[in-house]
């Protein structure tokens, strides 16, 4: 092959390159650019090096938001993954009930995020909301607008309602992909339902669960819309997570430099977590057994 021909091949990559440049590389580099400058006005900017990074990392309010964020994502994973697997296992495998189940379970995923927030915001109000009024009527002292614990619980329940279906659907698809022969062999071998789950279903779901954990981690770590609509980050700062903190910094106070620095840290953290998680769970399969 001649060299000229080789160079021509670059033209074929060009469209992709342009799309990626506009969708990812240029915006990202803009953020990098902002993060090392103090922007005083449209034409006045000063190079400040890593100053914004230092400032942001020392911010106590941000530490609080970060801690809440980690706690939130952890709780989301601990609840939604087992719950989703459970729902996936319980869903009927065939027939009209399977289709019906799929539709019902997929419903929360089809609702726009701010609508989800609104639904729960109204549902949980003690004066006009069905759920809130019911709890109030039962004598439970509940008000998400005042009590931080109530606010947290409400945000968690809302997210579980909204996103467990995704985990369940992924698991359901994974379970459906297991050939019948495995279940037949397990019956022949006299395996209990627990043994079937432990030795057939769970191992076969491994890849699906990795995807589910990654998706749910990333999404929950960047959660913004629903808590913003439901509680507005309150009461106080109790449900202010990282995205909202960031939005306040960038849009509310117009601190573009610190916001950009923080965005990069945020981005690298998510990337790092996913990378570590993926490498740890994807160890080679043929490691010697016990």
């Amino acid at each position: 092959m001649s060299k000229r021909k080789n160079n021509r091949a670059w033209f074929l990559v060009l469209p992709t390159l342009i799309i990626v440049a506009f969708s990812a590389i240029i915006p990202l580099m803009t953020v990098v650019n902002y993060s090392v400058q103090d922007i005083l006005g449209p034409n006045t900017r000063v190079f400040v090096g890593f100053e914004w990074f230092r400032e942001v990392l020392r911010d106590a309010e941000l530490h609080g938001a970060f801690l809440r964020q980690v706690l939130f994502s952890l709780a989301i994973l601990l609840i939604q993954i087992p719950f989703g697997v459970g729902v996936g296992l319980l869903m009927p495998r065939r027939g009209w009930s399977a289709s019906l189940c799929l539709v019902i379970i997929a419903l929360p995923l089809l609702i726009p995020w701010n609508v989800v927030g609104t639904i729960w915001q109204i549902f949980c109000r003690t004066d006009i909301g069905l759920g809130g009024a019911f709890l109030d009527g039962m004598g439970v002292d509940y008000n998400y607008a005042i009590d931080p614990v109530d606010a947290w619980l409400t945000v968690l329940v809302m997210d579980v309602w909204h996103w467990t279906p995704l985990v369940a659907l992924l698991c359901y698809a994974g379970l459906r992909a297991i050939p019948d022969a495995y279940y037949q062999a397990a019956q022949i071998d006299g395996a209990s339902p627990w043994a079937v789950f432990r030795h057939i279903q769970l191992p076969k779901l491994k890849n699906v669960l990795i995807i589910a954990v990654l998706l749910r981690f990333m999404d929950s770590f960047m959660v913004y819309t629903e808590p913003f609509v439901l509680t507005g980050g309150g009461p106080g700062n109790s449900t202010t997570f990282l995205s909202q903190f960031l939005a306040r910094m960038a849009v509310g106070q117009f601190d573009l430099g610190p916001a950009a620095a923080f965005s990069l840290i945020y981005f690298l953290f998510v990337l790092l977590f996913c990378y570590i998680f993926y490498t740890v769970v994807m160890r080679p399969d043929d490691a010697p057994g016990s």
Binding site: P179, A181, Y182, Q184, A185, H199, I200, P203, D285, G289
Partner: peptide
Amino acid sequence: FPVLYDTM
């Protein structure tokens, strides 16, 4: 077709 419990 062979069926094995491949975590064991």
